[in-house]
Structure formats: structure tokens, C-alpha cells
Design a protein around this nucleic acid. Sequence first.
DNA 1: CTCGTCTAGTCTGTACCATAAAT
DNA 2: CATTTATGGTACAGACTAGACGA
Length: 907
Amino acid sequence: MSSSDDDTPLVKGKTNGVKSDDRVSKQVDRAMDKQTPSNGHVEPGLSIRMGPVDDMEVDAPTTNGNANGKRKARSSLTNTYKEASSSEEDDKPLSKRRRTSQKAKQPKGESESDLSDVPLRARKPPKATAAQIGEDSDSDIPLTTKLVKEKEAIEKAATKEAKNIKNKEKASASKRKPKVESESDDDIPLAKKKKQPVQKTNGVKKAKVESDSDAPLAKKKAPLKKTKAKAEPATPAKKGKGKSKLEETEQDQEAEDEEEEYRWWEDPAKGDGTKKWETLEHNGVVFPPEYEPLPKHVKLIYDGVPVTLHKDAEEVATFYGSMLNSTHNVENATFNKNFFEDFTAILDKTGHGKDKAGNTIKIKKFEKCDFKPIFEWFESERAKKKALPVAERKALKAEKDAAEADYMFCTWDGRKQKVGNFRVEPPGLFRGRGEHPKTGRLKKRVTPEQITINIGKEAKIPEPPAGHHWKEIKHDKEGTWLAMWQENINGAYKYVMLAANSDIKGQSDFKKFEKARELKKHIDRIRKDYQRDLRSEKMADRQRATAIYLIDQFALRAGNEKGEDEAETVGCCSLKFQHVTLKPPNFVIFDFLGKDSIRFYNEVQVDPQVFKNMKIFKKAPKTTNDDIFDRLTTSALNKYLTGYMPGLTAKVFRTYNASWTMARLLKDMKSTGSVIEKVKDYNDANREVAILCNHKRTVAASHAGSIEKMQDKINGLRYQVWRVKQMMIDIDPKIKKKKGAEYFERPKDLDDEWLQQHQEATLEEMREKIQKKFEKDNEKLKAEGEKEMKAKELEERLEVVKELAQKYKKENKSGKIEAEGKNPSIEKLEANVDKLLQQIETKKVQMEDKEGNKEVALGTSKINYIDPRLTVVFSKKFNVPIERFFSKTLREKFDWAIKSVDEDWDF
DNA sequence: CTCGTCTAGTCTGTACCATAAAT
DNA sequence: CATTTATGGTACAGACTAGACGA
């Protein structure tokens, strides 16, 4: 057990020894218990110590031929560091330890297989809100009117839906029943079942897994189809005017699908091979509208002089001018610099501005440009558009839709498929995310001459705009794109592809989740291996093992190297010295900008060996901006992973862990409660996954305000509670003794000052309301040609406010509150209090929910990481309409999932 | 390196809801 | 008083396109 001497030089003064090692491992054990309350078992890799591998190989110096500046600096650094680390690992009683390691491997079985059951340790404990919500829903407290209404409506819908589902089930029940029973282990509470899934994964070979997902399909096929026709038409119940052309065609399409629906997920021929299509027809792309020059009176002002610009330069000026309200851009120095560079480049080409007299005005200084007139013009246009009557706006939209109808669909192997982004991206100023060095650069208008079309050989080639030609026509059956061009900012390729609900996208989505499920079978071994390799003699292996650990445990992205002209963001393999802080005994703080420059901040507890490794990887002379994993690249990592399973790469772990977590949470869920509560439970699980994946959104600007408003409302209600209680005393002074003085105390935070403010605010609100109403009434009278009311009328109306003010005054002075209402009684008042308390409770829950949600984006994980079949299973099992979880587009995207699983399907 | 695909946050318009006003 | 209609504000869907990954 003295293997910790691996790294002793690192921990100065702590020269090896059982003691220190034991201490660390105990701490971890405790920590693990804490972190996995539902499982309560100890991470096996920690108790089973694995010795290093036998053939201790001195790491070869980094021979990276690709010696650009960055690399070079890195490898020289690596060498010094390598020497240090290898020497410290050199002198170890290897043979001995090897034996230990073999022994350690022996007690196979339980603890080992448990690994797959715990993909996620070190998560933060579930938030109180979730628990609270659960409790609230269990205790039968009625919700606010709003919630109740919703609840009822939804439950109605649910029962309706349930009928449909039941019909469906009846049809297929007889066939499915036996299977359900044979797999009844699904009903065993998770706690007991803990080890079950492992057996499945390990012991079970393909046959079983397949039977889980595939077998029922064939059986269900027929009944399903019939019921679908019944269930679906409820959705397009759009009220009002006749359907637009578009809707009609969509419905026609649906009808067609109904008749001869193609179930690619049941087609064994689909999905392998690289050929994506045999025939492909489409109509190309839609170009953005031509630039419409500004009216003559709207001009850029340079140095106080309005200047006329060439059309092309003016367009660029409008890009900037129209976003003056976006301080985020306009106050960014890089943005302004880049914009102005590109702007002046255009000016140089087209000629600079001209003043009224026709003299050329050379635009040299950004600071002298005044875009305000342009901005105001755009604002007024925006306002005009907004003010357009609804009917007109609709007509305009219908017109646009009609013009684009031809581009919305293509024919792929004879089937009509929706195209995703058929509109060519319009010109504008590039923003980029985070501190992008190219922010503000002009994104140029794309011409047909830059666009390559991919289309079937027999198909009619789409007509380019008059006087233009396409760059190239391809017939690439291995590509899934219809058109492609290269963008001028980063030289990135842009593709026109099919929409998410298309067969081809569905297929790859399906494959992605199947791959993640496949990982289940290998995860035990992978985890065991990386636990072992965390102590490897070879630095490269040790780094790789540590990286996989991080990717597996904390859902980090792979982290490819990035270029100079991109925002500085990182992932696992590209983590730098400053992104990781170590806090003994074994805490690691990650703080870096990830994809999209979204901050990843997480303070976690790690395996002690990982902690030690990180310490080594950060060892001097490494310093700020040096790579932590200097011996590791994403491609090496992925190559290694592929060895376990074809197609396994770093990103699969994200999908796997996300779906696995969701599966676990949903399985654990109690089936009680109303639909609303079930949906809330689902969303809580969804949220947990989103937090795992670090899916964030910016807090809405209005957030703080609306939280404050809610708090104010709650306080108002609490004040009301107090008032009502005081009224009881007014009726029956003896009650104070009966209920105890405490019951009648005003909450401490609602002090006199607060009371004052609250009363004033209430009065002011009333006043405003009355005032507004008065004005409106007057306007109405005026419109009808009648006489307006006098100010005296207003005063009379405001009398109510005065009365209330008086009342408050009296109350404040005497400390007594007169009972309100007719025939007030203690009972009535008590009922009143109860009602108010309930209102407060629901408001509180709402508020906490909102607060917990403010910076978590649930959508991304729902769309990309959580196997949709899990949601479908949940929906079926707990009888919640799928519409509650998937919007229309998502239902279309996940059509394959909705139609392919039973409630006993398992991830 | 190039190309192709998947992932992801933000922006914009609109559906939806509570509430008030009108009938 | 119950029901319908208007209003104002929020949440959400869908569009958009940047960014990451990987073959």
C-alpha cells in the first residue's frame, strides 16, 4: 500500500508512508459517501489500489515535427519537466507493486461493476428547491388559482390523451404483456436494483439489448399507425382564419406520410455505408434581399458634415449604425477597430463620401463618424413595422413564405424532406462570442459565384439569379448538404443541410444515442483502466488517464487546440496552468472559458491520485499559459478511446453521462402527483443534466426586477396575514391568549419602515390606476363627441385612496385593526389566513424555481444530449402527454423516438 | 489541412397568461 | 355575477449562425 511514494517528491516533507496514504483515502471514502447518497457505495477505484505497469518506459522526448512557435516552446518546456518527473518515478520497487496490482484485480465483481452505476460523482448535492417542490406537491396544498386552472386544463388534456394512449395500448397490449412481466425487475425500487443494470450491460449480449429496443417495434407497427391518425389531428387546431398555403402543404405532406410512412429506424439497410442518397432534387438557396439605399435625408455625419456614400459603403455604415443600441458591441474597442478597418477598405474602393457641394470628404477617423441619423432611421422603420396592423403583417409573412415555399423542401431518395437553413446568411458585422479577435469584421454578401450546389445527377439544376452562375455543381452522394460556400471571416465552410426532422438527421441522431448506449458495455473496463493508468509510469499515459477521468466525471469537452485568430477558449486537453487550482487535500477548482466563451466554474473533489497527477502536471517550470496536458492531444485521446469501441470519442462521454444521469433520475422518480408536478419533476432532472453539461444562459435583464416584484408581493401577502390576524383580536380580544402572542406578531423584517413604504406604495398604485382610468374614460368621451369630465370627478374618485390612507394612519397609530367584511367571524378570518398562507407558499416555490433557473438553459441538453426515448418512456409510464416535454419541432425531430419505444425501454 | 456535422447561446417574434375592463 | 374581450408582460419556440469536434 505504499504506492503513494510515486509522487512523494511533490508533497514536500511527506516522505511516503502508509499514514499519509491512508488519510487521503479515508477522506475520499467519506466524501464519496456523501456524494452518492442514493447509492451509498464507495468508488471502487479508490479502495482497490492498482500498481503501475511493469514495463517502465522512459518517456521519449516529445518529437513533434510540427514545430510552429507554440509547439516548440511547449516541447522544450516538456523536456525539463519530463526529466524531473521520470526520475522521480524511476526508483520504485516495481516488481513488488506489480504483484499488489494483480492481487488487487482479483476481487472482481460487485464493486467493480458498480462503476457503471455511478458515472457522476462529485456532483453538487441536489438543491433544496427541488426537494421542496416535491414536498409541496405531496402535501395536498391547493395551488394558486393560476396553477389550479392550468392543472385542470392539463389534466383534462391528459385524460383525453390517456384515452388515445390506452387505445394504442389495448391494441398492442396482448403482445407486449408477457415481455413486461418477464422484465418486471423494472419495478423494483432503484435502491435495491442498483446492480441490475450492470448485469444487463455486462452479461447481456447483443441479443438482449436488441430485444429491448427493436423487438417490440415490429409487433407494434400496425396498431401504432392506426392510432396515430386519431391522436395527431388534435394538434393543428390553430384557430382563426383559413390555413395558409403553407400549412396546407404541410398537412398534405403529413397525410402522405401517414399512408406510406417510411420507418428508417426499422430498416436494416439504413445507416451503414457512406452513401447518403441515390437521388436528390432541390431548388437551391434563397438569397437575402438586395441592399436598399437610405432615403436622401438620412446620412452618415462625418466631422459634423452629412456625407453621401457609395451604395456599398453606405450598406456597411448601416450595419454599424443600426446597432448603436447594442452597447455590447459598440463599446468594444476591438469591434470598433475591426469595423472601421473594413469600412475604410470599402471606402477606399468605392470612393469616400461627398458633401452637399460634391466635395470628397475623406473618412479617416472613427471618432468623427456619427451614425445617429442612420440609427434613428432604422429605429423609426422598426417602429413602423411594429405598428403595422396584424392582418397586414400576416399578409406580408404569407407572401414571404409563398416565395420561399419551393426552397423549404427537397426530394431525397424520392421522399419529401424539409431543408434546414435554405437562406444564405445575410451580410453584416461579425460578432463572435467572447473576446473574439475578429469581432466587428465585415461579413460580406455571398454571391452565387461562391456557392457550390450538391444535387442528384438527373435532377434539374436550380437556376442561379439572373446574370449569375454557381461556383460549381457536384453530385456527391456521400455529402448530406445541398449547397455550400466559404465565409470570409474565418474561412469556415457553411452548408445548407436538411432540417432536424429529416430522415437523415434523425438517423445520425439515433446513431449517436445508440453509440452512447454502446458505451455502457465498455465503461467498466475504461474506468478500471484509467484508474490503473492514473499511476502509470509513462507520463503520456498518466495524462491521458487523468484527462479521461475528467471528461468522464465532469463532462468536460475534448478541447482541441485553437488558432491565434480565435477566441481563447479551452476544453480538457487544452486546459492551461491558470485554469486549474488545487486545494488540498483533493479539491480541484476549474475556472476557464469553454465553448462559446461560456465560463466553466466548478469546485470538485477528485480521486487523490488525480489530485496528485494534476499537481505533477502543474509542476514548475510550468506557469501561466502552459498546457496542463502537454503530452496529450485530442486526436491521441480519441485514437486511444476508439480502441475500446469503434467510434468512441471524447464527446460520446458527454452524451452517455447526460443520458445516463437522466435515466437514473427518471427511474428514481415517484409516479405520484398531478401532471404539473410530474412535469416539474422531469424539469428538475433535466436541470440536473444541464448543470452537469454546464449549459448556461445569460440572466435576463429583467430577472432581478421580477424577483424583487415577487418578493414584494410575498411580503404584501405576509402583511395581509398579519392584518387579518389583528382583526381576530378586534373581534375577540381573548383570542390573543388562546393562540399565544407569537401568533399575532408582525414578522420582524416587516418593520415600521417597511410598513410605511408598503402602505405608500399601495396608495400610490391605487392613485395611478384611478388616474389612468380617468384619462382613458375621458378620451373615450372625447372620441364620442361628449364632454370631458372635470378634475373634480377625478378628485371624487380619488376619495377611496384618501380613505384608505386614513385607515392606515389610524391603524398605525392605534396598533389596532378593525375587522373587515360583513359579519366577520374568527372562523372566516382563519380561513382567510389559510388562503393567504397558501398563496405565499406557491409564490415562494415559484420564486425559488425562477431563481434556480435563471442561468441554466434546459433546452440544449434536451435537444442534444438526453436520449429522447427516455422522455418518451417517462411520458408513457406516467401518462403525461409528450407535448408537455417536446415542442412541435422537437416532436418532429424525435419522431423516431416517440414511435419506437415502450414504457419498459431502458437506456 | 479540409471538409462535414454536431452543439450551443442569443435574438426576435409570438403564444400564452394574468388581470382588468367590458358586456 | 359570469363570461367575454382587451392589455400588458413574460416565457418560449424557432431561426440563426458561431463554435467545437472529428474523420
